[in-house]
């Protein structure tokens, strides 16, 4: 049985969890088995609705203390849920939650783990799965040798598939929750904005913008496209933009459908964070900027002239 971990933030199910559901359902078809979901903690809305994504059952350990990400506690609960339900493949989305708990769950279940997965397995000789390596510059085919397997899929790598109807049976699991040693002092969630790692469109800007006072047009372009904003490392290091917008080798790695780079040269360390984007648009006044080599579309021009026109033209087609 394939068990899909359904991550949520303050009760809201994450987009990446829907991707994991679709992946898990496809995986179960391939293996000729059943796909079910697992929720730890409390969610808003009706868990039965998750049947629309193709799963038959949703197991839930409905205890509010599980809403805090304590790796030691969640590991024990998830591992027991996997054992009790007879799960053989456990699917996570490779987000901050999975980075904290999936490797621990794998150790506890004596399972192999592959994270950053970008394909369904090839079953012709064993169980071989593809993952992203070298910060998106290459892929590796990895063979999993264990009976139980933990798979953590790259966000934005699989399309979500949802049916009009479908009802999953919701089954409450009675699993004891061990005491947590982690005390949460404060939580600071970014509200109202599109989270960078989940955004379908990202508008990003670099040193070519000259100074923080010029970000108005970047934000306006992002707003017009319902996009998230990002930046290059020197921009975050100079304090022009917050650190959580820094993408690249040493920042956040993203894979949106559309990445628009304004006044960014396209250094190899920057590309390492964005090269999995499906379509890349580069606007740079230097025709020799290395970013053009990795772009799908480009304009050689001054961002201060091109971006206002771009906003205007996009509004025309909306």
């Amino acid at each position: 049985m394939v068990l899909i971990y359904i991550d949520h933030s303050e009760g809201e199910i994450k987009k990446s969890s829907y991707e994991a559901l679709t992946y898990g359902v496809e995986l179960a078809k391939l293996l000729g088995t059943e796909a079910n979901g697992l929720i730890t903690g409390t969610i808003h809305g009706d868990a039965a609705e998750l049947g629309k994504y193709g799963i038959s059952k949703v197991f839930q350990v409905n205890k509010p203390e599980l809403n805090t990400i304590d790796a030691a506690v969640l590991t024990k609960v998830i591992a027991q849920a996997a054992n009790d339900t007879g799960a053989k493949e456990i699917v996570f989305s490779h987000n901050t939650t999975a980075k904290t708990i999936a490797p621990r769950v794998a150790v506890r279940l004596k399972a192999g783990l592959v994270s950053g997965v970008t394909s369904l397995p090839d079953l012709t000789s064993g169980f071989v799965i593809r993952k992203s390596v070298f910060s998106g510059k290459a892929f590796a085919n990895v063979k999993m040798n264990t009976d139980i397997k933990v798979i953590s899929i790259n966000p934005n790598s699989f399309h979500i598939s949802k049916n009009e109807t479908g009802n999953a049976e919701v089954i409450q699991l009675d699993i004891p929750v061990p005491a947590s040693s982690i005390k949460v002092i404060s939580v600071n969630k970014v509200r109202g904005e599109v989270p960078l790692t989940e955004a379908e469109i990202v508008v990003s800007a670099g040193r070519g913008l000259k100074g923080p006072e010029n970000w108005g047009m970047v934000e306006e372009l992002a707003k017009t496209l319902h996009a998230a904003t990002a930046c290059s490392r020197p921009v975050a290091d100079s304090g022009w933009r917050p650190h959580h917008e820094h993408v690249g080798q040493t920042g956040i790695q993203i894979a949106p459908d559309l990445y628009i780079a304004l006044g960014i040269s396209g250094a190899i360390q920057h590309l390492a964070g964005v090269n999995r984007s499906k379509t890349i648009v580069v606007i740079n006044k230097d025709p020799e900027a290395p970013f053009f080599k990795s772009a799908d579309y480009g304009i050689v021009g001054d961002v201060f002239e091109v971006v206002p026109k771009l906003i205007e033209e996009i509004k025309k087609i909306q």
Partner: peptide
């Protein structure tokens, strides 16, 4: 860092 933001914890 947690999903959707950050939090401060003590242990």
């Amino acid at each position: 860092e947690i999903e959707g933001g950050e939090e401060t914890v003590e242990l």
